[in-house]
Design a protein around this nucleic acid. Structure first.
Lengths: 353, 353
DNA sequence: TTGTATGCGTTATCAC
DNA sequence: GTGATAACGCATACAA
């Protein structure tokens, strides 16, 4: 709790001399330096980041908001982002909002106070208007919110197409896909369901979307749900679901004697590490979390200390220049306005039990 | 970015009047209140938490440090703690340190500046001395660091015993258990290995500890490791390992035609949700993360605004009173000095494939 | 009920 | 090179 003032007094110098030594702002006599260093050690002095931040209006830290830390998708993404930011000398703090509007707003309040320099927002409990009010550098994940903030997201349309192709290749006749119940056109991951329906229909394959409540980690609940659905739709031969429910379907299907993938083709969406855990490795559509992390940080850094945007009164994200688009293509990335789309990929599962 | 000063000017009142209205410190005339509220809305004013925190020396937020957010054990625990703290009106911020000393220290620096009121520390990259220096309320998880901070931890000794019992019941003759390579007597989870060895020896069962590098989520690496070990020790009939490597063993054993659990009994330690994901549900020793979360928060709250400890010059945690111990027993908790031990439990796996 | 003045721990701008 | 002082945004003791 020693302050810079205590150190200065202890060393018999002025406060600003101490400050200068700490920040390397100007030269100090080797002797005074020694005295100050001794005083700092003696008092176990640590600069108060809070006061520092208040003065400078910068904290060199970034916050990430997620609806649920427990979810492997978000924890993998967060972990990756932390590593990248550390390389860039940024601290990283993670907030889990439980998809709760109040909690999310609480975070934004914290953030508005220069406690962080920017936000990577993986939540979407607020309204578009509320997001628009945020006046700090922010990158959205998977949620469109006007043109103010860039959105970094997997190419879910491609994801739907790849999944459809798997079912087509497997000769499926009736595919059920499980989605969330939250209806919001701005949630981009919805596109994979739409696209899946479209392509399957095009190929004469029946499909049905079943929306369920995400009760994220009550595996037993997922398992019961899977059993019900398999019972209710005995002629289903294809399942498309997020990793966890997909695993639940795998186990439920095995439990009633179905053969995987002969009787039932399962495609998991996300492709997080838990798809490795099932004894039969599931075929999955892998969202490139490492690339998303890279791109999100890149976008955020550009907003923080990139090219000036002051001339842009509305704070709109400038549309990409030709150069930027070229550079993006090299990274195998598609830019569409303020959307940064990253390609997904198929990871084949085990064919045998 | 509007400050309280701007609001005061806009409303034509003094700064402190605005402050009083915000904090409810004193009454204000309904009329002035209206003016101020109008001004706040017009300027979209949000109090600066940073300045507020600097003045009050409190932030109403708690930090948690974990070595790896991706790990289901830590993400489950963090998620639970977040929920409990939210009920208590505390913000919760999570820091992932990658088990890196520098990163961990960076966090402590942040914390020393009153950016948080307390710490729940699940990391252990610093030395005992360095932890002792921390002068803020802190609770350790699984790591003993002198008498200054309470340690909330699963009863790993009990864990070792329960695991041993499983192997005994399965009639095992040779058990291999996988541990980390970091050697530190203060890491309490080591006790389960020691106890397992002890009880197995007592029952005439051979056992061998194999330390491996945790590369947390390279499942393929775990799988290869498992294959090697099964090849090198063909007569092994019991495996004790953390959830993920245990699953790797399960898959590796199935791959070479072993029957589970007849040829190989596997006991997973932690019992996080991923043990549900394997097609064959593993028998696991479940660490009670919800209870640990409860207890950690309880201890921290006691340090923050509990009974005064000023009379205790050394800042030592007072040893538990008889009342506290009774109350702890009701919660099925064992208190030993500054150690809070929570009982683990066995979750039986599927017996059939 | 409301306003004035001061301090929280920094850093930066001036002088010296 | 070093020192005094103002400022960041807020809250409180004290005066009005």
């Amino acid at each position: 709790m020693a302050s810079i003032r205590d150190v200065a007094k202890e060393a018999g110098v002025a406060i600003c001399t101490v400050s200068r030594l700490i920040n390397g702002t100007a030269k100090v006599e080797p002797e005074t330096q020694k005295k100050i260093e001794a005083a700092m050690k003696k008092l176990d002095y640590v600069p108060n980041e809070l006061a520092r931040g208040m003065f400078k209006g910068r904290s060199n830290s970034i916050a990430m908001l997620v609806p649920n830390i427990q979810h492997p998708w978000f924890s993998s993404l967060a972990s990756e982002i932390e590593k990248i930011l550390y390389e860039k000398k940024y601290k990283f703090m993670l907030f889990s909002t439980s998809d709760d509007k109040q909690r999310e707003k609480e975070c934004f309040k914290l953030l508005k106070s220069n406690i962080v320099d920017g936000i990577i927002c993986g939540t979407s409990a607020c309204t578009a208007k509320e997001y628009q009010k945020i006046d700090k550098p922010m990158v959205m994940l998977d949620y469109k919110v006007g043109s103010k903030f860039p959105v970094v997201v997997s190419d879910h349309k491609m994801g739907g197409q790849l999944a459809a192709q798997e079912f087509i290749n497997s000769g499926c006749k009736y595919v059920i896909h499980i989605s969330g119940i939250k209806v919001d056109k701005n949630i981009m991951s919805f596109e994979c369901h739409e696209e899946l329906d479209r392509v399957l229909a095009e190929n004469g394959i029946k499909s049905r979307r079943v929306p369920i409540q995400w009760n994220d980690f009550d595996f037993h609940g997922y398992f019961e749900m899977a059993k019900c659905i398999l019972e209710e739709y005995p002629d289903v031969d294809g399942i498309f679901a997020a990793d966890m429910p997909a695993i639940a379907f795998l186990k439920a299907a095995l439990a009633i004697g179905k053969k995987i993938p002969d009787d039932l083709a399962i495609v998991a969406y996300d492709g997080t590490y838990i798809t490795n855990a099932s004894t039969t490795r599931l075929t999955s559509i892998h969202q490139p979390y490492k690339e998303i992390a890279q791109e999100a940080v890149r976008q955020l850094m550009e907003m923080i200390d990139g090219p000036e945007e002051e001339d842009d009164a509305e704070g709109q994200v400038e549309s990409a220049t030709a150069d930027q688009i070229d550079s993006a293509k090299e990274r195998n990335t598609h830019i569409d306005g303020n959307l940064i789309l990253l390609p997904v990929s198929v990871e084949k599962g085990d064919t045998t039990l």
